[in-house]
Design a binder for these strands. Sequence first.
DNA 1: CGGGGTCTGTGTGTTACCGAACATAAGGGG
DNA 2: CCCCTTATGTTCGGTAACACACAGACCCCG
Lengths: 250, 250
Amino acid sequence: MSSTHDPNQNHLLAALLDAEFDRLAPHLELIPMLLGDVLYESGGKLQYVYFPTTSIISLHYVLEDGGSSEIAGVGNEGVLGISLFMGGNTTPSRAVVQTGGHGYRLSSRILMEEFNRAGPVMRLLLRYTQALITQMSQTAVCNRHHSVEQQLCRWLLLTLDRLPSNELTMTQELIASMLGVRREGVTEAAGRLQTGGFIRYRRGHITVVDRAGLEDEVCECYAVVKKEFARLLSDVKQRQSKPAAIRAVR
Amino acid sequence: MSSTHDPNQNHLLAALLDAEFDRLAPHLELIPMLLGDVLYESGGKLQYVYFPTTSIISLHYVLEDGGSSEIAGVGNEGVLGISLFMGGNTTPSRAVVQTGGHGYRLSSRILMEEFNRAGPVMRLLLRYTQALITQMSQTAVCNRHHSVEQQLCRWLLLTLDRLPSNELTMTQELIASMLGVRREGVTEAAGRLQTGGFIRYRRGHITVVDRAGLEDEVCECYAVVKKEFARLLSDVKQRQSKPAAIRAVR
DNA sequence: CGGGGTCTGTGTGTTACCGAACATAAGGGG
DNA sequence: CCCCTTATGTTCGGTAACACACAGACCCCG
């Protein structure tokens, strides 16, 4: 069903000017991204950068003792692989698919050629990177100061913002490993949110039934991140969608 | 004592090629940076970027309830004001002088002119930004997983790395506001480190007497940050120091 | 349609950190 | 040099989250 997939589903790709898009489009490859896929391993080389459309990628740091924490998430608003153009080529974190779906990948070489033109694409990618920095910073703050329940709210809202529906496929165990807390802590917090009428869930599925309510419960961290993304990336013009020849992989 | 001050004390400035340095040098202004000075307020406009030499700047987020957490620190290895060239112009965080000393400031306009050449200076600044991202990420992880004592070790070592001596002028209250914990928690952790023979302290002064010992106590987060800074910025060549005409302000 | 693996709920005990209150001491300014 | 501000030490009760253990429930697959 290639008609249901379009690079413009990714906000960064959608923000490109025609000329830029036309240069990149022949190299964009539609790929499925399955839950649990490790797209990048700590310290590894970046062959591709990834523009999620219907999937969400989680950037993690995995501790020596096996514990982990999400540092930031990447959905249809962004791109995985900033260390490529920031000049480091690698990072100490891992990138895992948190919500299965699709996305486009682009060869690192092609992206760098475009970045090195030092034009609008570079500036767009840097603005996105700054927004990502805000997300990371706020994660640090939230980890320090806010309760598991508040962090769960933040995480649910940020995830919801990247999905078309109000349901996410996600076990509490998985959420726990994202937040870096115990599974029981998530069970308890989710239980309270369900009792409060904000969400409903069953084995591996969470449905947000009162989004406005969640926004009342969440800590300020959510709004900070959301505002900063809006400020930095909302002014990007949405290019007129037009048919483009995209290779699908697999 | 202008002879005791030199832009090369800042590693980024020291890494510039002659031609680049010569373009910037006339615009560098030596300034004192006093403990507590707020160099940047959340959401404000950046008139200058700051290259610390003997001072350390702390990037904070201040919560609505008055609580705060350090997101990252900036010392002689870096520069304050990345949001300027990342394209956002503002950030939701605050920048405060954590250790008094000196530094050089440079008008935003001049820096942007240089950045827009899209040459080595741009690439250097972006690599530095990536290192800063690692510091922020690791702060998030550390906040989640490690004890106050381990975090204090990390903070002490990172601060020490930016100073010429093994003594820091710093009250426990101030450290507490950096780490985002209670002052008593710092008192307790510092007490244990003193009992263990790693540090000695008296009212507002902490002396590290067993640095190697501290490095045994600290969590992995310190090494991750340090390695990443080394990897991204150590290959920068140190330009031959040469006399330059620098205006001193005040 | 039934069994088994997985996901979720719950309990108990423990610990780290918090919040507040107060005691003590250091050391710089008058 | 003394006092008073400010930094540090200590205590107490409270709580959020942890670690471990196990019970129950779902639902997917054969």
